[in-house]
Simulated assay, not measured.
Amino acid sequence: MSNMEGVDNIIGIIKTKTATQTGKIVSDAETYKNERIRRAKERAETIVENASTKADNEVKLEISKYEASAILKQKYMILNTKEGIMKEVLDSAWDQATKRVGKADYKMILTRLAVQGGAALDVDEIEILLPDGIKTTIDEDEVAKAIKEQTGRTPSVKISKEKIRASGGLIVRAKDGTKWVDNTFEARQERHDSDIRDAIATILFGQEEKS
């Protein structure tokens, strides 16, 4: 074999190896490219899916906030309406109570309040203080007799010349001033406000709607 043929063979071998390596490189590059494309697509799909999920969650969150706000506003409206009704009833009851001052049955109301206060004091000498500007008075002996029926003792009952500021009712006080029972309309309303509101609420809205 001549030198020229040997060189040609070597060149042929080199070309074959080069072609093989080139093909492998191209194949590897193509595989790498396809893998990158596949990953990029998956990444893009994940991003789109996450964005869609995030958007859905944000929409659901906004809807939940709106619904919660609407429910809260509705509760406030119901409470305000109930409170308005309660106030109307309480105001009406107060008007009715004050309108009875000076009427025919007002003396009976005063007597009952005086007896209640006198029996609670448990003292021998009692003074009764009436509101200024109200002419209706009570029978001292009648009050003493009623207290005796409840307690078994007969206290001394006197109408005091001292006057008080009140829309109605009276104050029952021990003569020495050490203790007293404030049975004016204002004091009784304040003491029994919770019970009165509960009773009215039960009538208007039912047992579970008192608050």
Rank of each mutant, 00 (worst) to 15 (best):
L130N: 09
A144R: 09
R191E: 13
I85M: 06
A44G: 14
A97S: 05
P155Y: 12
K99C: 01
R191M: 11
E42T: 12
S211D: 14
I196N: 04
G133M: 02
E149G: 14
G152T: 07
Y66W: 12
Y106M: 03
T22L: 08
I147P: 05
Y106P: 00
I47A: 12
N80D: 14
T136H: 02
T136N: 04
P131V: 06
K163C: 07
K179A: 09
A114F: 07
A40M: 13
K75I: 14
T31K: 15
K82V: 02
E5N: 13
S52L: 13
E83H: 09
A97K: 05
V123Y: 05
I13K: 08
G117I: 09
A119Q: 08
I128F: 06
S69N: 10
E67M: 14
V7W: 09
I85E: 02
K73P: 07
K15M: 06
M77Y: 09
K210Q: 09
N50S: 11
E5S: 11
D195P: 00
I159K: 11
G206L: 02
Y32W: 07
G169Q: 07
A40R: 13
V123H: 09
V157N: 05
G152K: 15
P155F: 13
I25Q: 10
T151I: 13
T20V: 09
T178M: 11
L110I: 06
R112G: 04
S27M: 08
V101Y: 03
E162A: 13
I85S: 00
E186H: 12
K107Y: 02
G84E: 05
T137L: 01
E67V: 15
G102Q: 02
M108E: 15
N9Q: 12
E140A: 15
E30K: 13
T154R: 12
T98Q: 02
K158N: 09
I164Y: 05
